[in-house]
Write a protein that binds this DNA or RNA. Structure first.
Length: 426
RNA sequence: GCGGUUGUGGCGAAGUGGUUAACGCACCGGAUUGUGGCUCCGGCAUUCGGGGGUUCAAGUCCCCUCAAUCGCCCCA
C-alpha cells in the first residue's frame, strides 16, 4: 500500500453506507413533510464567503478552514459549514425575490482542520436546514421541533435541547458593556483565549469551558437579562410554542455558540453518550447574515446536524444492529460447456424483470458455487448442467428443503416471475 | 495546535534480544462420479505501520516519522 487515506478522513464501506442510506431516507422524508427543498452548493467557495459569513473572530475561520489558492490565483476555502454558502447561493440566484419564506435543506460533506478524535473528522457530513424571510418565532420553534423530530424518528433518546437567546444589535451593546464592566477587574485571570475575547467578543467568555473562567464569570450578566423588548417577546413566544408542542428543552443562559452570525435564538442538541464531542447538532437565528453578505435585509434561521455523530449516537444506543444481510432472489450455478452463456442470458432477463440474480464469475466447481449461493442466502438456486441443457431443462433447487424440480428451459422465466414479459421500460 | 495510549496476515490476537513469527475467525481448495449449511484435511505474513540507529543477533531496545485512539481547545 502506497498510502492510506489522509488523516481525519474516512471511507464509508458498504456496511456503513447501508446505515447512511437509512438516515438519508429519513432526511428525505422529514424535509418533504416540513416543506423543505434541497439545495446543493459547491464544496468550496471564495474564502471571503466564510470570513465575512461565519466571522473573522471565530475559531472555525481562525484555525480550522481548509484554504487553498487555485491555479488562477483565487483564494478558496473548503466549506466548513453550510449556512454561508446557502446564503451566497440565495443572493446569487435572488431566491429572496420569490415567495417567502424560502425553506432549504442540504446534506453533504464539510471540512474543518482539527485534531481527529471520537466524533470529529476533518471531513464530516452535515444535514442542515435554513429558513429565509421570516422573523416569526413560529419558525424558530418549527426548526427546533423538526430537529428533535428527526432524532426521534431515528429512535434516538436521551438527547437534550439547550436553548438561549443572545439578543440582537439593539440589545447586545448593553449586555456587552455590562459584561465587560463585570469582568474588567478580573481580566488578567482569564485564560489567554478569553483575554482576547474580552475585547473582541466578551459574550463568548460565558461559554468558555475553562474552569477558572467559569468561576470568574459566575454571576456575570447574562444575555437574557439584557434582551430588548422585541427579543424578549420573541424568546417568550418561542418557549411558549415549544411548550405547546411538547418539545422539551433546557434553558442555558451561557450557551453562546461559536459562529458570529447568530442573533436571538441559539440552540444546541447534545448527547451524553458519544464521548467528549457531545454536540450532535445546533443552530440559531441569523437576522443580519444576509445583509452582511451583501443582500437585502432578510431574517433567517437554521440548524446543522453532524451525521457522523448522529450515527455514533445511534450505534451507542444499539440502533444499528446490522440485521440485513445480503439478500438475493436467485443464484444460477452452471456446470459444463455452453452452460455459462445460457445462464448469463437467463440472469440478464430475470434481472430486467426485477429479480436480484447472481452467478459465478470464475468457472468454479459446482460445489464452490453452491457454497457461494448459500452465503447469498438465496431461497433458490437454478442449476444448469450439460445434461440438462441437452434436454432443454434446468433444475431449480429450494435451499431450505433441498428439494429440486426440473423445469423446461423455455418456461423457467415465467415459472420464476409469473410472466414471460419484461416490465414496461420507464 | 497541545497531552496520554497504541500500531504483528482481511479481522481478532500470541510473541517482553537469539533457529523456519502461535492460535482463532474469515477467505480459497479438497474429502472417488455434477450440488450448500456440520465435520475433517490442506492453502493463505520472505515479515511484524514506515525510515534510521544500537547489537554477533530486533517484531522485541533507542530516535524520527506516519496513522489510529482518548482527552484539551473548539465544534458537527
Amino acid at each position: 500500500m502506497i498510502t492510506g487515506a489522509p488523516r481525519g478522513v474516512k471511507d464509508l464501506l458498504p456496511k456503513q453506507t447501508k446505515q447512511w442510506h437509512k438516515v438519508e431516507a429519513v432526511i428525505r422524508q422529514i424535509t418533504r413533510e416540513y416543506g423543505f427543498e434541497e439545495i446543493r452548493t459547491p464544496i468550496f467557495e471564495h474564502s471571503e464567503v466564510f470570513h465575512r459569513g461565519v466571522g473573522e473572530t471565530t475559531d472555525i475561520v481562525q484555525k480550522e478552514t481548509y484554504d487553498f489558492t487555485d491555479r488562477g490565483g483565487r483564494e478558496l476555502t473548503l466549506r466548513p459549514e453550510g449556512t454561508a454558502p446557502t446564503v451566497r447561493a440565495l443572493l446569487e440566484h435572488k431566491l429572496y425575490a420569490g415567495p417567502l419564506p424560502v425553506k432549504l435543506y442540504y446534506v453533504g460533506p464539510m471540512f474543518r482542520f482539527g485534531r481527529p478524535q471520537a466524533g470529529r473528522l476533518r471531513q464530516f457530513h452535515q444535514f442542515g436546514i435554513e429558513v429565509f424571510g421570516s422573523a416569526s418565532a413560529r419558525v424558530d420553534a418549527e426548526v427546533m421541533a423538526m430537529a428533535m423530530d428527526f432524532y426521534g424518528r431515528l429512535g434516538l433518546t436521551d438527547l437534550e435541547l439547550l436553548l438561549n437567546s443572545i439578543g440582537c444589535p439593539t440589545c447586545r451593546p448593553g449586555h456587552r458593556e455590562a459584561l465587560q464592566q463585570f469582568l474588567a477587574p478580573k481580566v488578567g485571570e482569564l485564560c489567554s483565549d478569553c483575554q482576547k475575547r474580552f475585547e473582541k467578543n466578551p459574550m463568548r467568555i460565558l461559554d468558555c469551558k475553562n474552569e477558572r473562567c467559569q468561576e470568574l464569570s459566575q454571576g456575570a450578566p447574562t444575555t437574557v437579562e439584557y434582551l430588548c423588548t422585541d427579543c424578549a417577546d420573541h424568546f417568550n413566544e418561542v418557549k411558549t410554542l415549544l411548550d405547546s408542542a411538547g418539545v422539551t428543552y433546557t434553558l442555558d443562559d451561557r450557551l453562546v455558540r461559536g459562529l458570529d452570525y447568530y442573533t436571538k435564538t441559539a440552540f444546541e442538541i447534545v448527547s451524553r453518550q458519544i464521548g467528549a464531542q457531545s454536540s450532535i447538532g445546533g443552530g440559531g437565528r441569523y437576522d443580519q447574515l444576509v445583509e452582511t453578505l451583501g443582500g437585502p435585509t432578510t431574517p433567517g434561521i437554521g440548524f446543522g446536524l453532524g451525521l457522523e455523530r448522529v450515527l455514533l449516537t445511534m450505534e451507542n444506543q444499539g440502533l444499528l444492529a446490522d440485521d440485513d444481510q445480503e439478500q438475493r432472489d436467485l443464484f444460477i450455478a452452471t456446470a459444463g460447456a455452453g452452460t455459462a452463456a445460457v445462464a448469463f442470458r437467463l440472469m440478464q432477463e430475470l434481472r430486467q424483470r426485477g429479480m436480484t440474480v447472481e452467478m459465478d464469475y470464475q468457472g468454479r466447481s459446482l460445489k464452490a458455487q453452491m457454497k457461494t449461493a448459500d452465503r447469498f442466502h438465496v431461497p433458490r438456486v437454478m442449476i444448469i448442467g450439460e445434461s440438462e441443457l441437452a434436454q432443454g431443462v434446468v433444475v431449480l433447487r429450494t435451499m431450505s428443503t433441498s428439494e429440486q424440480q426440473t423445469v423446461p428451459l423455455d418456461s423457467v422465466i415465467a415459472h420464476l416471475c409469473g410472466t414471460a414479459e419484461p416490465p414496461m421500460s420507464v
